[in-house]
């Protein structure tokens, strides 16, 4: 049995809204320890993963291992229909195996229940790298304010939706996007006096090409946290992470492009 309390605008809802146009199904694994959501876009260019430990989820109840595929559009449409003041609970029970129920209870105790079919999402689950892998295989990381990161992603995506590059050295971080009529180039210098807001940590310079559209899609999710951390590798997907609550986190992986 699973009971997942949700609030309009919480990280779970935010991630679902963000990936609405990229993916049809979110694969969710729940255990007594917490929730792990994973969604892959239909073109297999990006993955988003949300980890939410039970202690960060007030009212979370799960007494067994549950692995389900949630139809993203149905869930988002239902949440959008609810009122901001409603208490929302996602339920998966033994008696209604194969379906999930989304219950909305207003402050006056009026209720609306949505019931929809679960989706088979076994093929959409990938074994993602752990922190040890990121430390050993990635040549650099950059910590920066999430609002700033979103602004850049929006700018890159508006300018050129197909081709962007992130480069990092121990002195600066640069973003580049190629548009049809021109290019955009953004540079951040590492400030020696303050590394709490912006910090570059590289073993060797890294240059990574990617599609800015995907990064822009996820960037709004990262504003749930004050800061984001980018992990860059010459041979692996770009990974962006932000922390949610005490021990929760959101990660997105964007597959690179091989430069001509």
């Amino acid at each position: 049995m699973l009971e997942l309390p949700l609030v309009k605008g919480d990280p779970f809802h935010h991630v679902m809204e963000a990936i609405l146009d990229l993916s049809d199904v979110a694969h969710v694994v729940c255990t007594t320890r917490g929730l792990n959501l994973l969604a892959v876009d239909t073109k297999h260019l990006a993955i988003v993963s949300l980890l939410f430990p039970a202690e960060d989820f007030k009212g979370y109840t799960c007494d067994e291992y549950i692995s389900i595929g949630i139809p993203i559009r149905d869930l988002v449409n239902a949440i959008r229909c609810g009122d901001d003041k409603d208490t929302i609970t996602l339920k998966v029970g033994e008696e209604n195996f194969g379906t999930i129920t989304l219950s909305f209870v207003s402050p006056e105790k009026n209720t609306v229940d949505y019931e929809f079919r679960l989706v088979d999402a076994k093929l959409e689950r990938f074994r993602l790298p752990d922190r040890h892998f990121l430390r050993s295989k990635y040549q650099g990381s950059v910590k920066m304010p999430s609002v700033e990161f979103r602004r850049i992603c929006k700018c890159l995506s508006n300018f050129g939706d197909e081709y962007g590059v992130i480069s990092v050295t121990d002195e600066d971080l640069t973003y580049f996007a190629k548009g049809t009529d021109g290019d955009v180039y953004v540079e951040y210098k590492q400030q020696e006096e303050d590394t709490t807001i912006f910090k570059i940590d590289v073993r060797e310079p890294v240059r990574l090409a990617f599609n800015p559209k995907y990064l822009n899609t996820f960037a709004k999710v990262f504003t749930l946290s004050g800061q984001v951390k980018l992990f860059l590798s010459k041979t692996h997907p770009l990974m962006v992470e932000c922390k949610i609550g005490q021990k929760g986190r959101i990660r997105c992986f964007v597959a690179p492009k091989v430069e001509p």
Partner: peptide
């Protein structure tokens, strides 16, 4: 503008 790689080339199904 480069050849787009798939995420499947990096991560195996769980």
């Amino acid at each position: 503008s480069g050849v787009q790689l798939s995420i499947k080339e990096f991560y195996r199904p769980d």
